[in-house]
Design a protein around this nucleic acid. Sequence first.
DNA 1: AGGAGATCGTCTGTCCTGCAGACGATATCA
DNA 2: TGATATCGTCTGCAGGACAGACGATCTCCT
Lengths: 172, 172
Amino acid sequence: MSTTTEDATAPATEPTSAAPSPLGWSLAALLREWSAHVAAACADVPHGGRGYEVLAAVTHDAPPTQAALAARLGIDRTVMTYLLDELAGCGLIERQQDPADRRARRIVPTDHGRVVLAELDARVRTAEDALLDGLTTAERDALRHLLARAADRAAPGDDRCAVVARVVDPAP
Amino acid sequence: MSTTTEDATAPATEPTSAAPSPLGWSLAALLREWSAHVAAACADVPHGGRGYEVLAAVTHDAPPTQAALAARLGIDRTVMTYLLDELAGCGLIERQQDPADRRARRIVPTDHGRVVLAELDARVRTAEDALLDGLTTAERDALRHLLARAADRAAPGDDRCAVVARVVDPAP
DNA sequence: AGGAGATCGTCTGTCCTGCAGACGATATCA
DNA sequence: TGATATCGTCTGCAGGACAGACGATCTCCT
């Protein structure tokens, strides 16, 4: 690139920050690949990877309301409505009237949903291992741990759900 | 798991995999926050965070063709067309006829584009530091490094661009 | 008790973007 | 030279995010 004289133009345009580690690109590329892998693994779920994420969040995090579930996953409320419609239509989840607040509906997985999710979790875990095959086991764990901490810290108000889930679901 | 008392309810439906570290959710949540921060920092660029990513990829990675640029960023070719239209309209980039292949157009940043990108890179770097303020400096570096490695490894065919860029742009 | 405001879920409409297909222009190979 | 492939652009389609409105319900304040 330095074959010709470009002395006056741009000798060092990025002296302070440069872009040594494009965090945004890494996140986007990795998430893209993850979505592709998971979509392939969850092709039989109503909305593919999205349906899996919803089912997993419902089961593992137990968000109190439908709105909290949507906020945690970054999905719009209006989309969550018909998303849950189809999941309920397949018998994976149930909308239960919250006795304490009749406006709210508690989204709970059915027994069938739990079974399906266990299978899907295994498949997704396999797909994730394939995705991260360039890293050692220790590095994978470190990446997962750092990502989880950064995301928990950065998420605006979604943490409450996770906290509630952890309190509700102690280690057996 | 106890082999005898698993009869009634659902004692342990996820014995094998569970979901101790929801990799997909962490990636999605962190990328969402990153996008929000970067969009706020790049509000004056034609397409916000997307425009910044394109400008950064054009400058730092120097993809050989417009199609390679689109593939690297995971953006459709048709979208890239009018995305570059607006960036060129603002004088940030230029479409140059590739003398070796007159079908292709080399996307290069203008001097103004380099200056703007340097400013944006600094802003983005600040936003990223704010995003990761829950991690120590060493942890941030580790996360960036692991993410970059995992993404480079997982990206299907985009690596060529990066390799080419590294070869073309050796350390001064 | 009663009313004002907020919250929850749903519906409607709009906009953006990714996707597939087709086209002209050009390069490569038989 | 002609057949095929690639590059960039344009067009139409579908899915999803976003904003707004609505009825039903809860909460708080008087």
